[in-house]
């Protein structure tokens, strides 16, 4: 009977150790899942920093190019204005003369729809 009782105790201890082993594994699992979040977060943060850096570079380039564009457009405008001014100076007198000539050039005519009575 003593030996039977001893045997039962041994079995119970074995069960207990087994349960502890499984419980320990479950705890490890939970810790691992938590780690997953932490590692994911770290990886994400690194990616975010990388994209931010790339973005800043592009932004700076864009702003810089805007400055360049403004200068270029201004230069183009000045060129165009110069050409227009030159063209105007060259042709103004002729156009003016032509206009005044036409003001004085009168050809009185009866309206096309007028019909002489009788």
């Amino acid at each position: 009977m003593a030996s039977q009782s001893q045997g039962i105790q041994q079995l119970l201890q074995a069960e207990k150790r087994a349960a502890e082993k499984v419980a320990e594994a479950r705890k490890r699992k939970n810790r691992r899942l938590k780690q997953a979040k932490e590692e994911a977060q770290a990886e994400i943060e690194q990616y975010r920093l990388q994209r931010e850096k790339e973005f800043k570079t592009k932004e700076a380039a864009a702003l810089g190019s805007h400055g360049n564009s403004a200068v270029e457009v201004d230069k183009e405008t000045v060129d165009k204005m110069g050409r227009i001014q030159g063209s105007y100076q060259q042709n103004k007198e002729a156009v003016l003369g032509n206009l005044l000539k036409m003001v004085c050039d009168i050809k009185p005519e009866i309206h096309a729809n007028y019909r002489v009575a009788g």
Binding site: E15, A18, K21, L33
Partner: peptide
Amino acid sequence: MAFIDQEASEKAEEIDAKAEEEFNIEKGRL
């Protein structure tokens, strides 16, 4: 007793493997 221990070890290994799998899935998903 040996059988009980074996069962527990297998169970624990299974849980560990599943943990690793879920770790990777979860991390990848996040």
